[in-house]
Amino acid sequence: MKKVVSLCFIGALGVLLLMLVSSMPRMGDPGSPTNRRVVDRYLEKAEEETGTENVITGVILNYRGYDTMGEVTVIFTGLAAVLAVLGREKRGRVYAYPDRSPVRSSIIVRSAAGFLLPFIALFSLYTVLHGEISPGGGFQGGAVMAAGMFLFAAAFGLWKAGRTVPPRLRFAVEGAAPITFFLVGVAGLLGGGEFLAYMLPRVSAGLQPALRTWLTLLVEGGIGAGGAMIFISVLMALAREEVGGGQAA
């Protein structure tokens, strides 16, 4: 009975949504509201106003920088939530990971991963640093880096991955993104502008564009490093299982 009701509900929702689709503005129409309003300033002035050739980066970090600050806080919240549910690793305890089986990943996987990893790392770094002029940016690069680390973990084991990126490093870097945002924001505030204005106090107007570029890079780096670390911490928290040694610590 409940099933039938739910199915009817979903069916009705689908029909309504399709009806709605037919009364929405035509897709790809240059005159539709989405392509007509607000957007022209981004397209025409972003390069000059934000100093980024990639307009998306300009929108993410400048026009809607506050959203991005919220975004990095969301992912941090995700980490804090996972840790609140599953707990943080503690010193002096022994943890096991689900891939502890004696069958190791094959030589092909390991050597392929070993071959690919440097390229992935390089690519992610490039994505972070080059986000202003080509597709990419802090978070994109951080995600690529995290995916690379996951590949490492799949090939060489989570235990080893946990050693390669030790907890201490992760604890320090996890909060990097919101903190850099906050610092850059407050710097803009002290510089006489608004929060997130990418300004520093006592910098002459001539240096402003260069300063903006450097501060943007700083934020991108913070997002990239913080994002990658958070993903790794989340994976480790999901994967690990306590096996003993707890009482002594």
Binding site: N54, I56, T57, P98, D99, T127, P135, G136, G137, F139, Q140, A143, V144, A146, A147, F150, A153, A154, F231, V234, L235, L238, A239, E241
Partner: peptide, 26 residues
């Protein structure tokens, strides 16, 4: 949307899948 394509490939196909697989293993 190249930025999104990059991110979706890394996050959707990479990170999310690994998280799911980990959960299923456990």
């Amino acid at each position: 949307a190249p930025d999104l394509a990059l991110t979706e490939a890394a996050v959707g196909a990479g990170v999310t899948t690994v998280l799911f697989v980990t959960a299923i293993f456990k």
